[in-house]
């Protein structure tokens, strides 16, 4: 898969817990994501979605296996891998005492975006995210939905080829979640490769080109929504998901 923006091959991650012993949080996970594609990683809480995405973002190191982001191996060249992706999760927050515009400027520079094109890029993102009316307001004074928009802008301001979103709609109301999904669709249409984890079926169904169902650290199935429905003989994605998880338990 030479053209894939993201590849993961047999990724494993083990933790040791005082009471539960060795936990294999991610167990031989493999997938790829092409440019202009959204791969949905669908799983219940604790399935291993966040751990997988944190390995892609080089925040944690794989126990075994490997992955690459835009051709950069996450073990060999983690800094280049990080510069090639925008990472957003429910636990990544912004600096409360910077304004939205300062936040975009700061993170663009942190990822090595050229100074001479910086202002132009920041203004473009402000326009894309429709955050102009509060671009000079401090983050601490924004609502949750506004902050999430700035967060998405922060993740894409350095124009990375890969975007990794870990449950980005968590905590958002219906309207804000709807708007956020629309943004991810537009990013996909602009040619970005997007890895999107969620446990909400409707979100996955709406924006994902392909879906990987993950459970107890292992990928149970991967394919398009119609492909998964056909394989499980289910009518809805939710039924297909439940069927896959139940069969894994047996």
């Amino acid at each position: 898969m030479p053209d894939s923006a993201v590849t993961a091959v047999d990724l494993c991650k083990s933790f040791v817990d005082d009471s539960r012993g060795v936990i294999r949080a991610v167990d031989e996970v493999s997938f790829h994501v092409d440019r202009g594609e959204v791969l949905g990683i669908l799983g219940v809480n604790g399935a291993g979605k966040t751990t997988t995405l944190r390995m892609l973002a080089t925040l944690i190191e794989p126990t075994s296996g490997t992955a690459s982001v835009d051709g950069h191996d996450v073990r060999e060249d983690p800094k280049a891998a990080r510069r090639s992706l925008g990472f957003l999760s429910s636990t990544t927050a912004l600096y409360p005492r910077l304004t939205a515009r300062e936040t975009l400027r700061f993170f663009a520079r942190m990822n090595g975006y050229p100074r001479e094109r910086l202002e132009e890029r920041v203004e473009k993102v402000v326009e894309m995210m429709s955050i102009g009316s509060y671009a000079d307001t401090r983050i601490e004074r924004l609502s949750t939905g506004m902050k999430q928009k700035v967060s998405i802008g922060r993740a894409m301001v350095h124009d990375p080829p890969v975007l990794v979103f870990d449950e980005p709609a968590a905590g958002l109301d219906v309207l804000n979640a709807h708007e956020m999904l629309a943004m991810i669709e537009s990013l996909r249409d602009c040619g970005h490769a997007v890895v999107f984890s969620t446990h909400v079926m409707s979100e996955a169904e709406r924006i994902c080109s392909r879906i990987a169902v993950i459970h107890q650290g292992r990928i149970l199935a991967e394919g398009t929504v119609p492909g998964l429905l056909e394989r499980t003989r289910a009518d809805t994605l939710e039924d297909a998901f439940v069927s896959l998880v139940e069969s894994a338990r047996v």
């Binding site: 925040l59 990080r82 510069r83 992706l85 990472f87 999760s89 990544t92 927050a93 912004l94 990822n111």
Partner: peptide, 9 residues
């Protein structure tokens, strides 16, 4: 916000 910073290059 530290995780956000650590995810940069």
């Amino acid at each position: 916000s530290l995780e956000t910073l650590l995810s940069t290059g």
